[in-house]
Simulated scan of single mutants.
Amino acid sequence: MFLLTNLAIIIVASISLSLLGVNSILADNGVDLNLTSLLIFCAVFGFIGSFVSLLLSKFMAKMTTKTKIIQQPANEQERWLVTTVAELAKKADIGMPEVGIFPAQQSNAFATGWNRNKALVAVSAGLLARFDRDEARAVLAHEIGHVANGDMITLSLVQGVVNTFVMFFARLIGFFVDRVVLKNQRGLGLGYWITTIVAEIFLGILASTIVMWFSRRREFYADAAGASLAGRGAMIKALQRLQQESAAQVENQMPDTMTAFGISSGWKKRPSRLFMTHPPLEERIEALRFGQ
């Protein structure tokens, strides 16, 4: 969701600025690109796209997963959930997050939000139904670990840098096609605009592999934080339960756009490792066992 929202913002901003003629300011007399101005321009809008995505993340997470926020616990299960999140948040020295349940049969959970003291932690109904309390607590600790580690902010910074260079190189490619390939010598022509948009989409997808690598690395740190807060044995047990359910192919009812935020990616068939948001569960379990 974060990546798709970010890419959409960048593309819409690029089209809008092109229509307004802002890009032409970056060219000296319509002949040569001013690389310094171009880099500053790309950095400003690259980071704007990233941080707007971050600010929208909690709202969009609630909407896409249909998460019900627990305002007042209605039963013993909800009381346990809120109490456990409060205990783990205090232990991790962060503010109390909003706590919610989303209606998915697959066992999963996620954390998101722009502020580590005003985050959202949500679990699926399926996880609460099938995991024992120690396993569920470990999953919550993993998500609290993401919040305490500031993963959402760090992801935004990484994405902002990636956006900057995607926009920068897309415009260099557009300029090259317009000037060298299409032989246009009058300002920035149609070839520049079309090539730039196409290059942004292609480079954005390619650059997402960097963000996916970062996401996979953060999962190991969140697992370690979960082990610290809830116990190494409980964290390993929770991951093993997820592994069992993955093997049994329990239906994934969490939107694909939200899987990067979850305890598990929800993939029945693994994509290319370059585009995986989570490391394989066996690697995560091994890292906890051997303290890597």
Rank of each mutant, 00 (worst) to 15 (best):
K58E: 14
M60D: 11
M60T: 11
A61F: 00
K62T: 12
K62Y: 03
K62C: 12
K62I: 13
K62S: 04
M63H: 09
T64V: 15
T64F: 14
T64I: 14
T64M: 15
T64Q: 12
T65A: 13
T65K: 01
K66M: 13
K66D: 11
K66G: 11
K66V: 10
K66R: 12
K66C: 05
T67K: 02
T67Q: 09
K68V: 15
K68I: 14
I69P: 03
I69C: 05
I70W: 10
Q71G: 08
Q71M: 04
Q71P: 03
Q72M: 02
Q72C: 01
Q72T: 11
Q72A: 06
P73A: 04
P73H: 04
A74H: 09
A74F: 05
A74L: 10
A74K: 13
A74N: 13
N75Y: 10
E76H: 05
E76C: 00
E76T: 10
Q77C: 04
Q77I: 07
Q77E: 15
E78K: 00
E78Q: 07
E78I: 02
E78N: 07
E78P: 02
E78R: 01
E78L: 02
E78C: 06
R79P: 04
R79L: 11
R79I: 12
R79S: 13
R79V: 14
W80N: 06
W80R: 03
W80I: 04
L81V: 10
L81W: 06
L81P: 00
L81C: 05
L81F: 03
L81D: 01
L81R: 01
L81M: 09
V82C: 09
V82I: 15
V82E: 06
V82G: 05
T83W: 02
T83I: 05
T83Q: 14
T83D: 14
T83G: 08
T83C: 07
T83A: 15
T83R: 10
T84W: 01
T84F: 11
T84L: 08
T84K: 14
V85H: 10
A86N: 11
E87Y: 04
E87G: 10
L88V: 12
L88W: 01
L88Q: 13
A89V: 07
A89H: 04
A89F: 03
K90V: 00
K90S: 11
K90M: 05
K90L: 13
K91W: 01
K91G: 09
K91F: 02
K91Y: 04
K91M: 12
A92D: 15
A92S: 15
A92I: 07
A92C: 06
A92M: 08
D93K: 14
D93Y: 07
I94T: 12
G95A: 10
M96C: 11
M96I: 09
M96H: 13
M96Y: 03
M96G: 07
M96K: 09
P97L: 05
P97C: 10
P97G: 06
P97I: 08
E98P: 00
E98W: 04
E98H: 03
V99N: 07
V99K: 00
V99Y: 01
V99W: 06
G100A: 04
G100H: 06
G100E: 13
I101M: 09
I101R: 05
F102E: 02
F102S: 01
F102N: 02
P103I: 06
A104N: 01
A104G: 01
A104F: 03
A104T: 04
Q105E: 15
Q105N: 14
Q105A: 08
Q105D: 15
Q105P: 00
Q106D: 10
Q106T: 09
Q106N: 11
